[in-house]
């Protein structure tokens, strides 16, 4: 005989057989498992390649242990790439963050111009980075590029020369992604409570004091979210660099991703390319972990639970 607990809303609850009850968790996890396998399969395969001497043009593929890692770590090109990648990631992220925060604060004032710029600001984000790279490459051209013409640099100033290429690429990255930071921070600024600001205004606090003591600590988690996104993305930069310089002149802009691509796709050295990619993954993973920890602390501080 069924008890009252077996009825839901006056209706009879469906009976579930013990076998079905036992298998239900597994059945429910199938979609997640399929997606996980889709992600992990190529990842594990890629890691597997790093222990082989796998080149598309050579048939004798065999296990070489840590040979690829030894080769990479003893190659000055690798350390040069690490330096270039980190320089790019740090400078581009810092530039985009500072500019993005400034723009967000300016747009926060609800003037007509602010409202118009808010809409216009998103335009660079709507252009694929590869296309943006092609457009900037044309603008950088010393012979017919508009930049040399506007700044009256003549036909001998080369934005993509060995000494300037990295900084020019950072400039292009900042042009594309500063709006991303600005929009994220602007959303954060607009969600801040008004009361603390009103109270400090009544107490006679100045604008800069309020910004430093109130606004900045409260919007810090939003800034950090933007920094995490941008820094991770910058570490993996490929498209803009490849379109503008292909990692050149010489090795001046050879980031880790560009080297991985050249190894794998141009030189058929799948194991060499996979080794670069795996090392980059470790760097990105460890950096992300630290930044997320930092974000957690900032959120706690903004919520007032930590001094």
């Amino acid at each position: 005989m069924r008890s009252a607990d077996d009825t839901v809303g006056g209706r009879q609850a469906p009976t579930v057989s013990p076998a079905r009850r036992k298998w239900r968790p597994y059945i429910l996890s199938i979609p997640a498992t399929v997606i996980l396998i889709g992600i992990l399969y190529p990842f594990v395969q890629g890691v597997g390649y790093t222990f082989l001497n796998y080149r598309a043009t050579e048939g004798d593929v065999h296990f070489i242990g840590l040979g690829n890692y030894l080769q990479v770590f003893t190659d000055p090109l690798f350390w040069g790439s690490v330096r270039i990648t980190l320089t790019f990631a740090i400078v581009a992220t810092a530039l985009e963050t500072v500019l993005g925060v400034i723009i967000a604060l300016l747009l926060n004032r609800s003037s007509l111009i602010g409202k118009i710029f808010e809409k216009v600001l998103i335009l660079p984000l709507m252009i694929a980075p590869v296309i943006a790279g092609v457009i900037w490459k044309l603008m950088f051209n010393p012979q017919f590029g508009i930049l040399n013409h506007i700044f009256n640099l003549g036909s001998t100033f080369d934005f993509l020369s060995e000494g300037r290429a990295l900084w020019s690429i950072i400039m292009v990255d900042a042009w594309i992604y500063t709006p991303f930071v600005a929009i994220l921070v602007l959303a954060g600024v607009r969600s801040l409570p008004k009361e603390p600001f009103e109270a400090s205004a009544v107490d006679g606090a100045g604008w800069f004091y309020m910004f430093r003591r109130l606004m900045l600590p409260m919007m810090w988690p939003y800034i950090l979210v933007a920094v995490i996104f941008r820094f991770m993305d910058c570490l993996k930069v490929f498209d803009i660099v490849y379109v503008l310089t292909q990692g050149g002149p010489g090795h001046a802009t050879s980031t880790l991703q560009v080297n991985a691509y050249i190894n794998s796709i141009i030189n058929f050295n799948y194991s060499g390319g996979a080794t670069y990619m795996f090392i980059l993954w470790i760097i990105v993973y460890l950096t992300a972990q630290q930044l997320v920890k930092l974000l957690g602390r900032a959120q706690a501080r903004a919520a007032g639970s930590e001094a």
């Binding site: 020369s161 060995e162 010489g250 001046a252 030189n267």
Partner: peptide, 22 residues
């Protein structure tokens, strides 16, 4: 030789570096 593309591109990279002042 089977590594023609890779080694000749490295040669071009060296030439670019020399052009850049190396």
């Amino acid at each position: 030789q089977t590594r023609f593309l890779e080694t000749t591109e490295d040669w071009a990279v060296a030439l670019q570096s020399i052009y850049g002042g190396s």
